[in-house]
């Protein structure tokens, strides 16, 4: 991984969002450098997506600050409900925010394994296929900061591993900073540089190896999770 490029691309300092008389998240301090994958884990309602939206500038923080050192951001949202009154093919969607060439589009769709769907209407895709298109679109914009909110939900098991590998590959090839929100602790432990454990605030953070030993992690996910995860090393030497 391209760790020598330590240029920080995004910083959150004590950021918090206050809505409907409560703090959705509070005191979030984090930074992402080029080529780094930062994973955010945490239970439902712990503010993972909110944190992502603060980083993206969709939500303005009510406390703290956000410093972005790039404007080339790509986003894969957790829920994308497209209004079907709008007919949209995969190829139209791929060009949503960028004027990507046809060749680039076919290349990234090929990377996520959905090149054959290029002229299909988005409406006719399955959940997993749609997720692959979403990821492909984000990659095609060649971002410097990639924010992925549960990017492999609904993808089949083998596809999941392949997509996680792809995210890893893209992060080092584009040398972009990546924030990944994931439930897949296995991937988190094997392939990310840093982990943040969120529960309304940052419970613990650090490298995967240190975090599985921390008391807060064990409290949040249980001792068995920590035990099964610590020895796990993912095999990156093959493709699917």
């Amino acid at each position: 991984m391209a760790k020598e490029h330590n240029k920080i691309i995004l910083e959150l300092k004590d950021a918090g969002v206050y809505r409907s008389n409560r703090w959705l998240v509070r005191n979030i301090t984090l930074s992402v450098s080029k080529g780094e994958i930062l994973t955010i884990i945490g239970p439902n309602g712990s503010g993972k997506s909110t944190t992502a939206k603060i980083a993206l500038g969709i939500l303005k923080p009510d406390a703290g600050s956000v410093i972005l050192h790039t404007n080339k951001i790509a986003y894969v949202p957790q829920n994308l409900a497209i209004d079907w009154t709008l007919p949209l093919r995969v190829i139209d969607f791929m060009r949503l925010t960028n004027k990507t060439t046809f060749q680039e589009i076919t290349e990234v769709l090929d990377m996520t394994g959905v090149a054959s769907l290029i002229n299909k209407n988005l409406r006719n895709l399955s959940g997993g296929e749609f997720q692959r298109v979403l990821l492909a679109r984000a990659i095609a914009t060649k971002p410097e900061l990639l924010i992925l909110d549960e990017p492999v939900q609904g993808v089949d098991f083998t596809g999941e591993i392949a997509l996680y590998n792809l995210i890893n590959q893209v992060s080092s090839e584009l040398n972009c900073g990546t924030i990944l929100i994931s439930h897949d602790l296995h991937f988190v432990m094997s392939a990310t540089d840093n982990v943040i454990c969120l529960n309304g605030h940052i419970c613990c953070s650090g490298t995967p190896k240190t975090i599985v030993q921390s008391k807060e992690f064990i409290d949040l996910f249980g001792a068995s999770a920590a035990q099964t995860l610590s020895p796990y090393e993912h095999d990156h030497d093959h493709s699917h």
């Binding site: 993206l56 500038g57 969709i58 986003y75």
Partner: peptide
């Protein structure tokens, strides 16, 4: 299509 994607990009 999606306001969040559009505004973050």
């Amino acid at each position: 299509v999606n306001r969040d994607i559009a505004s973050s990009e």
